[in-house]
Design a protein around this nucleic acid. Sequence first.
DNA 1: TCGGTTGGTAAGCTATGACTTACCGTAAGT
DNA 2: ACTTACGGTAAGTCATAGCTTACCAACCGA
Lengths: 102, 102
Amino acid sequence: MANLSGFAALADPTRRQVFERLARRPSSVGELAEGLPVSRPAVSQHLKVLKGAGLVTEEREGTRHVYRLDPRGLGAMRSYLDRFWDRALAAFKEAAEKETDS
Amino acid sequence: MANLSGFAALADPTRRQVFERLARRPSSVGELAEGLPVSRPAVSQHLKVLKGAGLVTEEREGTRHVYRLDPRGLGAMRSYLDRFWDRALAAFKEAAEKETDS
DNA sequence: TCGGTTGGTAAGCTATGACTTACCGTAAGT
DNA sequence: ACTTACGGTAAGTCATAGCTTACCAACCGA
């Protein structure tokens, strides 16, 4: 089974903001920290978690560290949820039919 | 934007176990608690969170409370991730091309 | 080589989250 | 009515997560 820490990674609102900003454009740590209500070290720590979840990659340009989205973690999460999608629809229909019985 | 607390809901491992067991078959609180390494109240609290995230529905049969998967929360999470899927692939290709430049 | 820019890490604080036991409410069977 | 089964809630404990400031390392331009 793939790495599911992506759920924990996207659970935090500010970390989700970091993720969504990187979806707009690849950015450095400082650029991200400017537009966010937290300090630069906090952003750095969030990026570490996102990277560990495979949601983000790091590329070093001199001293600048540029982060961008990584499809790997995203794909793992998507396929995890897809495994339950059919089940959920089936459960919904069963419940709906049981409802109309009464 | 839809309810994104699903990420927080699935972030916890034992709560994810509850969710996955409900994918197999709709179950009552006690049934769930039997197969899990935590107490029944803990399961009850997890179900409250899952329900709040729209991942699970509750149906009362007398004193038994039967829980089953709810497609609503699952769908919200899927479409959220899908919004970033194309972006992630594009970012990956850009990075790969920049790699071959050097 | 030295000053400035960039960013990761350490240490510490605080809030929150997951868990426990104890308790209470409600429905069903006798 | 009494009892038993089922499950949600309260209160308290402990670990962890997110944040801050302070510090250090690495790379770059003059």
